[in-house]
Nucleic acid binder design. Sequence first.
DNA 1: CTTGACCTTCCGGTGACTGGAAGCTTTATC
DNA 2: GATAAAGCTTCCAGTCACCGGAAGGTCAAG
Lengths: 131, 131
Amino acid sequence: MNIKQASERTGLPAKTIRYYEEIGLVAPGRGSNGYRVFSASDVHNLAFVGRARMLGFTVEDCRALLLLYQDSARESAEAKKIAEAHLRQIEDRISKLREMADTLGQLVAACAGDQRPECPILGSLAAMEDR
Amino acid sequence: MNIKQASERTGLPAKTIRYYEEIGLVAPGRGSNGYRVFSASDVHNLAFVGRARMLGFTVEDCRALLLLYQDSARESAEAKKIAEAHLRQIEDRISKLREMADTLGQLVAACAGDQRPECPILGSLAAMEDR
DNA sequence: CTTGACCTTCCGGTGACTGGAAGCTTTATC
DNA sequence: GATAAAGCTTCCAGTCACCGGAAGGTCAAG
């Protein structure tokens, strides 16, 4: 099948699929007209990567996971290690964002948000020594 | 003062300060030798931006906030609007990350992580129809 | 007078795409 | 057979907020 169909079946934009080929994540064949030809397993691999990306794995993680997936002699410990590291990263990012949101929430709550110039948000940014 | 001192007082890397000048966030003067010369208010503005960045504001938000800060005729509603929009974005990102982390946590918990190839993580990525 | 710290600009890279231009091929319609 | 629309190709540039490094100028100390 051509790229459009592969795109529809995987939910990935055609541009993204071309990009994945460029960086060697998939290697579809080529027809005599130069068009990419996607096999069922190409589509399967693309969908695999698409789902991994939805879970926030980096493209390099996706590459590693795909290799493991295709390796019948793999050890599940390998995949778990990658997933655990990623999970820790996500939790880290969440806690940093949580802190930002909390601080920001306090500032927003303290701001009248009217036509007057006094603003605890701007004041706090100007000198945050009080926190 | 020179860039190194400005960097030390604001906690921003010299590279970042040069970048902020390039995009017009600050406009330090220049000495006869071509070196940047930072006034107290330059440093103040840089610190302002640095704190806004720590709260996750985009550089463009920082520019807007800085302009408001310097505008004595501002209305606090303006600043509040920016902060609220940003807060919503952060909350969005948190909830997306929270979903990822939850899904990922379940997969990690279900994976033995030993020398055997069976792996619910890889299996789930290969076909996530079951969730 | 040299050493080392500091400063300058410019170029390229990051991650994971996305948009758009210029130019093929294929398919459908008249 | 002409033409138009859809779909394909490659390549270039841009995104965001910087960071690293090269090549070279300047300044203070010994």
